[in-house]
């Protein structure tokens, strides 16, 4: 759980970095997207690892939740769980499921069409009407205010998930140190707020400049 979580945290940073390019330069975003979408190592080695990482994290998360719920068949009639643990730490399954539902929409919007164009239609050129299609496709997706709203809401759930998940992954791996753990916690909070907020800004940017 922790290892796959840390792996996804690293992936998220990479995803964010490329998305951020779409704000500053359409050409740069197109170049990098084309490289990511057509490079053999990324497509045939790293992409399957990522898919496995996502599926493993989701499956293990739900398996652990089911097992942990089974460890207390009789609930307390009166419980004050908030007195000793944060909402984020107690509701990872809720924020996780919300992110998972978002992934369904995100795959429908971007990943499935990409897979269709490349692997079913056999078009690896990345071109449409004589120019790269990546920036236009991305930009077009954020015209619909409902979709933008759903994306922004999902990033809030992602932030809540990361607020606990980042430092929790280190603890599960046994990486706890009097000197370094407070640093990990601070970096975790910064990451959990800055990255999802950045994704929100990018989505709003594409919506507003349309």
């Amino acid at each position: 759980m922790a290892l796959s979580g840390l792996f996804l945290i690293v992936f998220l940073l990479q995803h964010f970095s490329i998305n951020l390019m779409s704000v500053f330069s359409a050409d740069l975003f197109n170049e990098v997207s084309h490289f990511m979408g057509t490079n053999s190592v990324i497509q045939y080695a790293l992409q399957p690892v990522l898919i496995f990482g996502v599926i493993f994290h989701l499956t293990m998360g739900m398996y652990l939740e089911a097992k942990n719920r089974g460890a207390r068949p009789q609930k307390y009639a009166y419980n004050k769980a908030g007195a000793s643990a944060s909402w984020m730490s107690r509701n990872m399954i809720i924020t996780g499921i919300m992110v998972m539902l978002f992934l369904g929409l995100h795959f429908y919007d971007f990943w499935f069409p990409e897979i269709k164009i490349k692997f079913i239609d056999g078009d690896w050129s990345g071109m449409e009407n004589g120019a790269y299609r990546y920036w236009d496709h991305t930009h077009h997706k954020f015209v619909d205010p409902i979709r933008v709203g759903l994306y922004c809401a999902a990033f809030v759930f992602l932030a809540l998930h990361l607020l606990h998940g980042f430092q929790s992954a280190f603890q599960s791996m046994g990486w706890r140190h009097q000197k370094y753990t407070p640093v990990v916690e601070k970096v975790g909070y910064a990451y959990a707020i800055i990255i999802p907020l950045g994704f929100i800004v990018i989505a709003l940017y594409h919506h507003l400049i349309h």
């Binding site: 652990l64 097992k67 460890a71 769980a81 730490s89 107690r90 603890q171």
Partner: peptide, 15 residues
């Protein structure tokens, strides 16, 4: 014994 797994909520340390 059927205990659950730690998800690092930290409630145990507080209580």
């Amino acid at each position: 014994e059927g205990f659950g797994n730690c998800t690092n909520t930290g409630a145990c340390e507080v209580q």
